[in-house]
């Protein structure tokens, strides 16, 4: 599993790095960025799904 942020849709609502700081960080403007290569270790899969489900801008996608 891998998480991806669509930077055009992200407006920095900050839910992803609030829910899963292991997977997401923020830049100087407060927009969300994926940490590293975005590959999700099995123990964080649930958090990744929750981050996706809470982003108000639908900016996060999960790839198999």
């Amino acid at each position: 599993m891998k998480v991806v942020i669509n930077a055009d849709a992200c407006t920095g609502q900050g839910r992803c790095f609030g829910i899963a700081p292991e997977l997401f960080d923020f830049d100087d403007l407060g927009n969300g960025v994926v940490k590293g290569d975005g590959v999700v270790p099995p123990e964080l899969e649930e958090k990744a799904r929750l981050a996706e489900a809470n982003c108000p801008e639908h900016a996060i996608s999960i790839e198999a």
Binding site: T11, G12, Q13, G14, G18, G30, L50, A53, N54, C55, P56, E57, H58
Partner: peptide
């Protein structure tokens, strides 16, 4: 509530700039 895609801070380009502070 685990899934909560609320829009209290708005949507799109005017998304509340102060949302981190407000939270």
């Amino acid at each position: 509530r685990k899934e909560n895609r609320h829009v209290a801070f708005g949507l799109g380009i005017h998304r509340c700039a102060g949302s981190n502070l407000a939270r």
